[in-house]
Structures are given as C-alpha cells and as structure tokens.
Design a protein around this nucleic acid. Structure first.
Lengths: 345, 345
DNA sequence: CTGAAAGCGCTTACAG
DNA sequence: CTGAAAGCGCTTACAG
C-alpha cells in the first residue's frame, strides 16, 4: 500500500480510497453540517492515518491570502533589530501567521528586490524599516498601490499615509539630558549622531530643550557630531572637549559606542567617571552594562516596537474588505537606564 | 480604464485586453520560440504598463516548489543566532529564495508547531536548531518522511541521517587552553558550562587534552560548573578559586558572561588581569571587546554557520529528482580572539 | 504561430 | 446527504 511517502496526501487521495468525491472529503474535514457522521468519521480517520495536512499553497491561491507577513530590515544582526523581529515573530505566531524576513544590508537596491520578492510571494502585508541609503520610494508605492498593507518601523518615510512605529528620539534626548541635570551635572556636552538623520537631530533638539528647562547653558562648542558612531570616534572626539579651559562635567552621547569611547577618553585623561564627568549613552546594543563603570543609557524598546508594528499590521489585515482602517503613528517612549556612569552622588 | 488597482494584473487580464489566449501570453512572457515577435512585443509592453508580476503562489502550486526555506531557531535575539540567520538570508537572497523564520523560545511545543506551520506552507527545505527542551523528534520525522530536505545547525540530533553544521567545541576548548598555555600560564582553571550539554562536555574535554599536551596539571578542584552561565554566576563561582591556597593563574570560561563575572571577581580581589591571572571566554555575544581589560575569547562563526547550512540545503534542493545527495556533517573551527585579558607578557 | 484542455490542491455555489 | 463544475493563476502537452 502506498503510504504517501514523499508525496503529501491530498484530499483526492482520501476521496479515492473512500470512493467518495473530493468535495465531500473537503466538507467532512471542516465538519460541515451537511455531511453524515459516518462519512466524517471515515474521512477523519483516514486523514489521521495518513497525516493529512491541507496544502497551504492551494488555500492561498483560492483565498488570495497567504497568512504570511514580510519583514524588511536593514540588518538582522543588530541587537535592536533582532529584538524587533523577535517581537513581530511572537505576535505573528499567536495569530497563526508566518514571517518572511529579508535584510537589506543598508542597500537601496537590495531593499527594492526584497520588497519585490515578498510582493511576488504575495505576503498579506509588509513591515519595513528603510535602509540608510533609500532615497526613492517607487518600490513601496507598488506595495500600497497593489493594496498590500504597509507598516513602517523605526525608519519611516513621511510620504506614505500608513501606520508606523518609531522611537521618540526627542524625548530620549530630553530624558538623557534631564537625567544628567537631575544628578547635579551642570555643563553637559553632547556627542551627536550624524546630523543628516532626523533621529540625530531629534535627540539633539531634546538635549537643547532639557538644557533650557533646567536652566543650563547651551554652548555650541559642547556639541560635536560623530558621523559613524564608533567607539574610536567617540574616543577621538571627546579628547578636545577635555582640553577646553572650561570643560564639561557630563557627556550625553547619541549612541552607546560613542559613549563608550568617551568613557575611555575621560579615564585616559585621568578624570573619574562619574565623579568628575558623568556619561550617558543611547542604546542600540545591550552592551552598556558591561563597561566600567557601567554605562547609563537610554533604552529603545525593540521588542515592543516589533509587537506594536505587528499589531498594527493585523489590525489592517483583520479589517473587513474595503473598510477604511485608521492609521496610527505610534511613538514609543524610551526609558532611562541609570547605572554607575551617572551616579555623581 | 481599469488600471488593475488593488488587483494584481494576471495573465488572463493581459490576454483579454489583447484578444489572445492566456497560453499565448504565458509563452510570450517567457520568450518561447514559437511566439511571433509582434505578439511578444504587445504582451511585454502591456505587462510593463500594468507592472505584471507572476503570482508566485500559482507557480508554487503547479511546480510544487515555493522557493522558500524555513528556519527554526531557539532565539532570534541571540547574537550568535542572529548571525546564523543573517548568513542563511544572504545565501538565500543570492539564490532567489525567501526565508521564513520561526523562533521556538526554547520550547519543544513551539518548535513542533513551527515545524508544522512551515511544512504546511510547503517550504522547500527546513533548517533547524533544536530547542534546549526538545527530547522527542516526531515532528522532524514528519519532515524527512515527507521528503523535505532537513539540515541541522548548531544543535542537532544524531537520530537523523541529514546534513548538519556545528561548532567544534572540543577544538574550541582546546584552543582556549592552548592559548593560555602559550601565553605562559601554568595553572589553568575551567568554568565549565552545564555538563548535561554535549557542547559543555566537549569544551571541557578539549581543555583536558590541551593541559595534557602542554604538560600542565589537571586538577579537579580547578573545574567548576556554571549551570546558567550568567555574569553573576561566573562572579560567585570564581571567588572560591581565588581563595585556594594554590590558586590558578588563569581561567578558561566556557561562555563569555561567566568569563566577565570571573574578570570582576579577580579585580575585586585585588589581583590584576592579565598579569596575575589570565582570562579567556567563549563567545556567544559580541561583548568581549568592551570589558576592561578587553576579554580574549573563542569566536564562533555564526554567519559562516548559516551560510554553510544554506549551502548544504541548496545542494539538496538542486539535486536532480530522486538523486541521492551525499550528507555532509560540517564541523566549523573556532578562532582565538586574543585581547588584553591574556597578554601576560 | 496560436488555442483549448487539463491539472497543481483546494473550496463552494449549484443541483439533485 | 453527496457530487459535478467552476475557479484561484499559472504552465504545457497536444492539436491544429
């Protein structure tokens, strides 16, 4: 007897063996009220025996639904993005959806091809975080024009009327600066991120506002742009700050590697952290707890971002056909993680 | 005119507009030699105009190939596994395949459901790293019984005659110990991983062999098991070692967090790293470079593991139907990353 | 050079 | 209570 080895058993196979029609088998399997008890039993027994699994591809073709969502992300290996993916995956799992993941490696061309491939695979919806390189959006226009729900996370384009989830960078910059001010630091410098990015500008703006609100001076020479955000760059760009006649007593770095570089530069110059100079970072990684002294940082809720983005996606997917879905643009709050590097007292 | 908005244009649509049959459109699109130049041009013009994309679902149903591979991984957020996924994704991208990723969160039940879901989605092949909990393998039997290629990575079961890629943990343990010996350390302790895991036992065995090869004493009281592998545990379990009358002059920890804990314990006790005691870890994360002193470590090639596993998968997928594919069980070498914590001289 | 038919695996309106 | 037919979007052997 053919045990269906290396050939997935189909409804037809069951129908043939039972001398009934495929239609009846199909109905029996979904417990349709029309079908007799006996037939149902015979069908379900055989289905169990042969470990029948409905062919999702065939279902997708009929229903025009794949129960799959696509995710396009700049880099899988970044701690932040892997958290986002994890959040998306957990929610999708609960909903019985599969997740296709593509990484762009920060290349627009690869982003375009990935979107294209996911569209060809007829994903039910697409979650996208733009590559740093991406300047044009035709590939995403195709998504929305085709009627496929699109949700942005972390890196969005404002050219689209779609839902999105981003971090509140302004608030993060504010929180970091406020935290330093509350710890008693008065002369707070800022190692900014690349200022062509909105997110860097927002953190910078939050920094300025917090200075104002806490009655501290804003000094242009206390702000230095770190274009790459590496440890090395943080180290090099902190040195001149320490050579100032009126040197800062705290540093807020817009990313953790730069903060770690600052930490080293300060220690190398013979000053103490946090007694002489406090340092706070902005966390892309989970590294901050390991340096010495442990680095205070602003945490970005990656997992939550993924879960929220997925939630917005399912909201769109579950809407009745044609029903207009209200777009949400969610801004997630950051949190201050206070560690040794800012414990002035 | 209907621009096909919110309805992907099909071959039928093009056929209708051109008053030809779908068969002809299909052939024209694939540049079939039978079709006239004029027809081809008309078809391809219209396809371009409407941005026609072949429906991959329909193709899959016909060809019984989805051009999708499934990945089942314990945790997406682990640096090591995210590297593996990244490696898989890059290779799959080059081959024009999509990747579905499921995480089990180390739960057997979720592993079973994920495998089941991927099978239902008719992935062409499955790459699996077992959850820590997994004790039975019926869900994976279904994969191989159904004729779907299976490849294990990192955590495998030996009950299957399938290809696999793992890390050479024995060699890694050997390398770590050898490195310490070559740096001039003589009394090398070992913070072992949970010894019910094969990988911990292998690292331990490599440690023992290297001691022997370098003429160093193996002392049972120099070996301590760290069940959780946390920083805290590494800290606590290192202290007794430092209280020994004849204390070790080096520590090989089977994982990085434990090594970092050891580092702290040693520094807290007033001893210096690397002058008094050398420390080397085994790297699950990318953290080792950040602690002070920077931690030497054994690196596990996660990206390469993913790329190799994908390569093995495509080897199976590209084999002619029915052709027997030779199974490969690849063991990837680790590398010594030498940093400050072992620079005795 | 082109088309009608069958089929991939399923569902469901229609008919009996 | 059950079945034949049509269709999801495509391809291809067969016929002309």
């Amino acid at each position: 007897m053919d045990m269906g080895n290396s050939h997935q058993v189909t409804i037809k196979d069951i129908a043939r063996e039972l001398n009934i029609s495929p239609s009846t088998v199909s109905r029996a399997l979904k417990d349709h009220p029309d079908i007799s008890k006996d037939t149902k039993k015979a069908v379900s027994d055989l289905a169990k025996k042969y470990n029948y699994q409905p062919n999702a591809i065939a279902l997708s073709l009929r229903s025009r639904k794949t129960n799959t969502i696509g995710v396009v992300v700049p880099q899988i290996v970044h701690f932040f993005f892997s958290n986002v993916i994890s959040g998306i995956e957990d929610i999708a799992y609960d909903k019985g959806y599969n997740v296709m993941v593509c990484q762009t490696n920060e290349l627009q061309e690869r982003e375009e091809k990935s979107v294209q491939a996911l569209l060809a695979s007829r994903v039910d919806g697409l979650l996208v975080s733009l590559s740093k390189e991406t300047k044009t959006y035709d590939h995403l226009r195709k998504v929305t024009d085709g009627g496929t729900p699109l949700v942005f996370f972390d890196r969005k384009s404002d050219d689209f009327d779609v839902s999105s989830v981003v971090i509140d960078d302004y608030e993060g910059g504010y929180q970091a600066t406020e935290h330093l001010a509350k710890q008693g630091y008065k002369k707070i410098a800022h190692l900014a991120g690349p200022l062509n990015l909105t997110l860097s500008k927002s953190r910078y703006a939050g920094y300025q506002q917090a200075l104002k609100d806490y009655g501290l001076d804003y000094r242009r020479d206390y702000v230095i742009e770190c274009a790459n955000g590496t440890i090395e760059e943080g180290y090099q760009k902190t040195k001149p700050l320490l050579d100032l006649r009126d040197k800062p007593d705290a540093v807020f770095a817009a990313n953790d590697p730069a903060a770690i570089g600052a930490l080293k530069a300060i220690k190398d110059s013979g000053l103490r952290v946090p007694q002489d100079i406090g340092v706070i970072g902005f966390s892309d990684w989970q590294l901050a707890s390991l340096v010495e002294p442990a680095l205070s940082s602003i945490s970005q809720p990656g997992y939550e971002m993924g879960a929220e983005a997925a939630r917005l996606m399912f909201k769109a997917l579950e809407a009745a056909k044609g029903e207009e879905v209200e777009k949400e643009n969610i801004v997630l709050k950051t949190n201050v993680i206070s560690r040794e590097s800012t414990q002035k007292k």
